[in-house]
Design a protein around this nucleic acid. Structure first.
Lengths: 252, 252
DNA sequence: ACAATACACGCAGAAACGTGCATCAACTTG
DNA sequence: CAAGTTGATGCACGTTTCTGCGTGTATTGT
């Protein structure tokens, strides 16, 4: 049996049965478990399956969903979220962007904090349901699945009907010259619309975003009040941003 | 059974039933309670569940609340949902109400069904994120936490901008004379607004709702095309509804 | 307060794992 | 054509991880 053929077989098996048990596959095909394990290791490295003790599982959307929902948010995002929460004053209105970092902020909000949260992300809205004192306003629109937020004309229009004290937005790129960028044009427009409705805008950016740029510009530095990040304050990029007059909130 | 598979099973169970009882799960899966307890301990350490004496609960109280309500008649709701899904034609537009029964419908939608779902519930929208072919349109507005849906003027206004082929709404009371009722006036108005935007409206009502009435009227019988329920077709109330000319879809 | 149950901890056997090594086939190179 | 090279494969070994059981402790309900 060819190696490629074997890999094909594994993927098919994964699709048909939802799991692979290294031992039984090896027995079925009459090859050693080592080869199966090696294949699984490779497939996992390519993101084609999820390696687990005893075999492998699909990189199922269900799992991804779980992962996204419970997201043991990476440490950086949690730190950034914890720092960002400090910006939210009791009684104020907050516009909260979508994305995992923003979701971490929603989770980090004190449960008894009375405030208004405006968001275009159903995920964020759902996460805030158990904050008894938080008033939630959902901005509607066509849901852009990749990042689970409302986008498009209707969403922008809805955004224009609200105002807030603070806007927290996430981006995928934070660069001294390129400004704040993200990977989708619709999303970029939506973020701009949100930022325009708040007195102050702060950007959430865990350290891996610092110094990178994506395709679409969201905002320029002049339009944001500050940056919340867990990046090292001595990082040269961070220093340059500070020189631009930004309020830098160091996450822990 | 793989260890990772087991953990997924536990998470799913937690999501579906709102709780885990270590003893019964161990018996169901034919493994020792120790393994279950160890898994639960690990999941709790990752923040994926809340460990309690005897088993585990979901992390978020809101989820627990939701899940608990869902557990009231999970079977009935699931049956109703499965039957309701049959009404949704490929390519059509569906207005989906909030609530646990509607959530069950969202979950029961085939993953590869191409259709447009319009909803005012962030929970429903979030649940549909992993349906790659479903187009989701979220209606915005102030979130009414009790049932996790957008309500109020903004939501009604947003609803008036859309149209659909079918509307599936849930109610808390289904009564021959009182009509369709629910416990909150805002919600009732919202449901009315939704129903008005679809060519046909079907009501989702698991058997415990049949023959009961709540405070606020949603719609009269003349305004709905049919009823999806798991109640016994020989039930006198159901017979009277049938006599009113309703299309009765028997779940299961 | 007491019994029943659930629990954490430690232990030992078993299973799965990664790594280094030898073998073998296919291919390249002189 | 022969020698060398490369990559895949299986085996052996030591290590890590998982699992069920026994023990003693904590929690619950009566």
């Amino acid at each position: 049996m060819l190696a490629a053929e074997r890999r094909e077989h594994l993927l098919r098996l994964l699709d048909d049965e939802g799991k692979i048990i290294a031992k039984s596959v090896a027995a079925d095909l009459g090859i050693s478990e080592d080869s199966v394990r090696r294949d699984l290791r490779d497939l996992a490295a390519e993101g084609l399956c999820q390696r687990v003790y005893g075999g492998a599982l699909p990189v199922s959307p269900a799992t991804a969903d779980y992962a996204a929902r419970q997201a043991v948010a990476p440490d950086g995002k949690r730190k950034v979220a914890a720092a960002a929460v400090e910006l939210v004053r009791p009684g104020s209105a907050l516009i909260l962007d979508g994305g995992t970092t923003a979701l971490a902020v929603a989770r980090a909000l004190p449960r008894d904090l009375a405030c208004t949260v405006i968001t275009h992300s159903p995920t964020i809205a759902a996460a805030l349901l158990d904050h008894p004192k938080a008033e939630i306003f959902q901005l509607g629109g066509r849901i852009f699945k990749h990042s689970a937020v409302a986008c498009g004309a209707a969403a922008v229009e809805a955004a224009q009907q609200v105002s807030a004290d603070l806007c927290l937005i996430g981006v995928t790129g934070v660069h001294p010259e390129a400004g704040l960028t993200t990977g989708d044009a619709e999303e970029a427009a939506m973020k701009r619309a949100l930022a325009a409705r708040a007195a102050e805008t702060y950007v959430l950016a865990s350290s891996e975003k610092i110094g990178t740029a994506s395709r679409y510009r969201v905002l320029d530095w002049g339009q944001v009040a500050g940056l919340v990040t867990d990046a090292d304050p001595r990082d040269p990029v961070v220093k340059r941003l500070k020189a631009l007059g930004l309020d830098l909130l160091a996450a822990e």
